[in-house]
Computed example of a mutant assay.
Amino acid sequence: MNRAVALRIAACGIMGLGAGLLIAALLLSTYTQGKIAKVPLNLDATLVSDGSGTAFEPASLNREKFVVDRDVPLALQEQVSVEAPSNADVVTLQVGSTLRRTDKQKDEGLLLALVDTVTINRSTAEAVSSESNPGGAVQKPRAIEDDQPPTNIALPHSGLTYRFPFDTEKRTYPVFDPIAQKEFDANYDGEEDVNGLTTYRFSQNVGYDADGKLVEPIKYSSLLDDDADSEVTAPAAMWGIPGEPDERITMSRYYAAQRTFWVDPVSGTIVKKEEHGYHYYAREPLKPEVTFVDFKVASNEETIESQVATARDERDRVALWGRILPITFVAIGLVSLVGGALLGSFSLRAESALIDPGLDEADHSFFDTQGMKVPGAEAKTEKLPAQKPTDLPPDRPV
């Protein structure tokens, strides 16, 4: 194989590499990015919010009067994990939530507990359901001494839960509330920096209007067979209501909430959350009489730092496959195509020079032919003087 053929093969290989890189860049920026921008299957986080509020004292159930304490320290904890079914298209999140009085020990301080399970689309973060999976469930409350497996109660979810979609937009999204058991709008409020990360802020009102006024509270849906926590009948004296002390009065439990979410718009991760929850007993929905818990909590600094780090990791993963690699492949691909074309041009000229050096006179310095000298071709030709013809005598016969 001569030098020209080798150059031509190399040129074709380099151009093929360039074309392949351009195709790969196109696929990465379209098809592959859609496969990468999905909710991870390895979510495992503990989210903690701290605050204070007015709270019922559970021990007072055995006293003559219900006791409600003001200005008590509270902590809301959410444990997020992944359960089955989870695959390339959907992921099932199980979130165990507890609200505790931190001034009480163990179960004496437990005010609220809920285990919520939802299956969501990994791309849109919206709840999905099928014949075998209703899209969500809540766990039936159990006594501490109960050693039986937990029982799930089917609760179809809709809208978003616990996450926003990738490429979150500046608009209103429906966000599901597992306590109210239906979705409520979360409205875009603006941009805000959270630990160096630009986030979108969304606000949600459940039972409140935009000014924070109680307008349409939700009647609490009990998960117990006897509805013991949604309707309570007790003497007026225990309720602390004026009148006959022994009069039996039945009150219903109502619920309302306000939430603010700070969302990373690239990954849809909620990096920070503030929540105001209000549970109370009343005979009329808009006339609260006895507070069960009225609290305001916000994500603590450790949770915010952890969620910001998670959002940045997901951002980097999407950027690597959706922007960095495609740009790199395009740049290398274009350089390879140009370099291959130039090398191919040189190979053709080299082949011409080998066939006939005279066809490539302009490139003698590149294709050196001094090593192929032909002695005869460079020998000087001696010129012989021409003999002058002599005149014949006129009388000499020819």
Rank of each mutant, 00 (worst) to 15 (best):
T161L: 09
V138G: 06
L114W: 03
L160Y: 12
A113Q: 15
S123P: 01
T117N: 03
S132Y: 10
A137F: 03
A137R: 01
Y173V: 11
D147A: 14
T168P: 05
P141A: 09
R122K: 09
T119D: 00
F166K: 07
L160C: 04
P150T: 11
S130H: 11
L160S: 06
L155W: 05
T168K: 04
E126P: 04
V118W: 00
A127L: 01
I144P: 06
D116M: 12
I153C: 04
V175S: 08
R142H: 15
G136P: 01
Y162D: 06
T119P: 00
V138Q: 12
T124H: 04
V138H: 04
T172W: 06
I153E: 05
E169R: 09
G135H: 03
S129A: 14
G159V: 02
P150C: 08
Q148V: 13
T151L: 11
E145W: 11
P141K: 08
R122N: 13
T119R: 02
K140L: 13
A127D: 00
A143H: 09
P150N: 13
V138I: 15
K170H: 10
R171H: 09
N121I: 07
Q139S: 03
V118T: 10
A143F: 12
S129I: 05
N133K: 05
N152Y: 14
R163Y: 12
E131Y: 03
A127W: 00
D167Q: 14
T124G: 05
N152S: 14
E169I: 07
E126M: 08
V128T: 02
P141M: 11
T124W: 02
P174Q: 08
S129D: 09
K170R: 14
A143Q: 12
T151H: 05
Y162C: 10
G135R: 01
P174I: 03
R122D: 07
L155V: 13
V115E: 05
F166S: 15
L112W: 15
G135T: 00
F166Y: 15
F166P: 12
S129W: 01
T151R: 07
G135K: 05
D147W: 11
L114R: 04
D146A: 06
